[in-house]
């Protein structure tokens, strides 16, 4: 259940962003992608998740193994917390949302409409969605945005448990998650040669 990226080039809106990225993600390992704003972390993760084709290079891995979580949580504001989770569980063909609800401390919130949650609570619900997908490879883009310290710890715990179960995680993040065992990949050296003006456009 490993993911091997070989000599990958990615482009955003036709402008090359990263060139020659190679890494391997093995079962039970976590890889943290680092780089300044606009370096191409989001584009890299979207390409790995299969949302856009690579400009060049190979992404080798089994099909349907990746669960992607982007900047937006994909929550429906008019559905309750448990309805949101149940929907994704059904889409991914799993049944049990209980472990996810407990892991992210959502028990007291389960009947609240997602629209009434705070930003951090929404993020926790978005991350809980990863657990109900039942997929082995988590691809996470800035998973800790708007989380408080306690929630970051909950998240780190969930990731650690996922790794122990033989899963793996690819994360783009700026803060320290307290996952000492995670490998770090700095993508700054891979920036494409005719460097496009660093802008936040890649995140819009």
């Amino acid at each position: 259940m490993s993911l091997v990226i070989d000599n990958l080039s990615v482009a955003r809106g036709g402008i090359p962003v990263l060139d020659g990225v190679s890494f391997a993600l093995r079962a039970g390992r976590a890889l943290v992608v680092r780089g300044p704003n606009g370096a191409g972390k989001t584009t890299l993760l979207r390409t790995v998740a299969g949302l856009q084709p690579p400009a060049q290079g190979v992404i080798a891995g089994d099909e349907d193994t990746i669960a992607y979580a982007g900047h937006a949580d994909g929550l429906k504001t008019m559905l309750s917390v448990s309805e949101n989770l149940t929907f994704w569980a059904q889409v991914f063909g799993t049944a049990d949302i209980e472990p996810a609800v407990h892991a992210f401390d959502l028990v007291p919130l389960r009947d609240r409409l997602a629209g009434t949650l705070s930003a951090g609570q929404k993020r926790r619900l978005g991350l809980a969605r990863l657990m109900v997908t039942g997929r082995p490879i988590w691809v996470l883009d800035e998973p800790t945005v708007s989380l408080d310290a306690a929630s970051v710890a909950l998240f780190a715990q969930a990731v650690r448990r996922h790794l122990e179960d033989g899963g793996s995680a690819l994360m783009a993040t700026h803060i320290d998650l307290g996952l000492a065992e995670a490998d770090v990949l700095d993508i700054t050296p891979f920036r494409a040669a005719p460097r496009a003006a660093a802008s936040d456009e890649a995140f819009l």
């Binding site: 949302l51 991914f92 063909g93």
Partner: peptide, 14 residues
């Protein structure tokens, strides 16, 4: 598309 569920549906098994 706005709330990001379209991205997630695109990576779902459907």
């Amino acid at each position: 598309w706005e709330d990001g569920s379209l991205d997630l549906l695109a990576t779902a098994p459907l």
